[in-house]
Amino acid sequence: MKNALYVALALTLTACKTNSPTMVNQLDTPSARSNLTIEINEIMSDSISIRALDYGNGAYWYSGSKGKYGKINAESGEVLKLQLPPGEALTMEFRSLAVTEHYTYLLSAGSPALVYKITNATNKVKLVYSELGEKVFYDSMKFWDDQEGIAFGDPSKDCLSIIKTIDGGATWNSSLCEDLPKFIIGEAGFAASNSNISLYKDHVWIVTGGAAARVLHSKDRGITWESYSTPISSGGEMTGIYAVDFYDDKLGVVIGGDWNNKNDNLANKAISYDGGNTWKLLNVDNGPGYCSDIVFIPETKGKELLAVGPQGIWWSGTQGDSWKKLSDQGFYTVKMISHKEGLLAGQNRISSFSLRGDL
């Protein structure tokens, strides 16, 4: 959301998307890790806001404000800080990031929208897309592979902005308004954690906030779309869905709430067992209030969730029926590569973390 994000979202958070191909719908047995705890260690500090994390080829990548980005060796923890070329990039916040086998793509929030393509092997940087406009504001970007990616942003015309590339960023095409679900005035997205989009095989889900809290779903990589309503709170400028994660083509979760009322946990998290068509609120008086990200923890067969926000970190071993607060430390985004470890990023810092508890 363009008009409020730069001020209001200076305190928000994002997460990891590593999914197992085995599907678990409604929970049969809870996780065995009832004694789970977390250990957090800061590994990098900088004078930037970091809202995007991703992982590929043994390294975490991050992007933030002032045109700064970098990568962290997952095994050694070695940090390589990098800087985009001088110019407009140095004034932009790069809140969207996507890592593929050979490339890393960075996307700025606000105008101009800039997409940079980085060759992972050499760190060579190339500007591949630029979009100017008073209403231009992109919230999230994901890639299926080296060539095909999608980005989502606030409405700049008469519909939400969705752009796609099928040639590694060389060209980008905007979805026509007539091909998208009907726009609701006041609906937009949140560039809080690069988690407005979730991909699974050919599926893509995009979540919204503001006047409506909807899920937009495409089964064919963004060619055709459907929209689904959710019970997540909406109607205010900073209400709605901030993050989505799908475990497979059926099981998905969303989280968000009201940034202006962060303790409200009555209608801020929900689960779907049918690909996003219907949603059920998760334990309406338990667990986290406002959060900017939620993920299925890898290797837990869809049983475990991790939610992060400015007021801390929460874990569920019961698909959201019950929650345990693990830490009061707030972050913007999280990325996990196993059920035990990952990274957290936020204002001026990145931390590694370990979840202690046997499966």
Rank of each mutant, 00 (worst) to 15 (best):
D46L: 10
G58S: 04
V128M: 04
A89M: 02
V244D: 05
G56K: 07
F296L: 00
V308A: 02
V207M: 00
K164E: 15
N173A: 10
G133E: 03
N3T: 06
L176I: 13
F246P: 02
N120Q: 11
S20Y: 01
L127C: 14
T318R: 03
L199T: 05
T122H: 09
K126H: 08
S352L: 02
K182T: 15
S76R: 03
S338V: 06
I294N: 02
N265Q: 07
S96E: 11
S292W: 01
G330T: 02
Y200F: 11
S233E: 12
L36A: 11
A345Y: 02
E93P: 00
D321K: 06
V79T: 10
K325Q: 15
K335I: 14
G209A: 08
I166T: 09
T171E: 05
W144Q: 06
S195G: 09
A59G: 06
G320N: 02
E75L: 06
S174M: 13
D146I: 01
S316Q: 12
C177I: 10
S161K: 11
T230A: 00
L127T: 08
T100G: 09
V254M: 10
L176S: 09
I38F: 04
M238Y: 10
G240L: 15
E148C: 11
E226K: 13
T119M: 11
L305D: 00
L107T: 07
Y69M: 15
M141C: 05
M1K: 09
Y55K: 05
C159I: 02
I48F: 07
K335N: 15
T333R: 06
G77S: 00
E131P: 04
A10L: 05
N194H: 01
G64N: 15
A170S: 10
N25R: 14
G87L: 12
H102K: 07
R349V: 05
D158V: 08
S338W: 04
F137A: 15
L107F: 12
G236N: 11
K262Q: 13
S218V: 11
G287L: 01
N348F: 07
W144H: 13
P30N: 01
V99C: 14
S322P: 04
S47A: 10
Y105L: 07
I255R: 05
L216I: 04
A32Y: 13
V7L: 09
K182G: 14
L282V: 07
C177L: 11
L359P: 07
K157Y: 11
K164C: 10
R95H: 13
G209P: 13
T165E: 05
N194C: 03
L199M: 06
T208V: 02
V253I: 05
A4V: 09
S327R: 12
C291I: 00
L53N: 08
I38G: 14
A151N: 08
L27C: 00
F152M: 13
S34D: 06
T91G: 14
C291L: 01
G67P: 04
E178Q: 09
L306G: 00
T29Y: 04
K262S: 12
P181C: 05
G58F: 13
I163T: 03
P155A: 07
K301W: 01
Q319P: 00
I313C: 05
A213G: 08
D139M: 03
G342E: 03
G87C: 12
N283A: 14
G236L: 14
G320E: 00
S227L: 06
K142H: 12
P181G: 05
L180W: 09
E93K: 01
Q147T: 07
R221V: 15
I206E: 09
G70Y: 11
I43N: 14
H203E: 10
A109H: 14
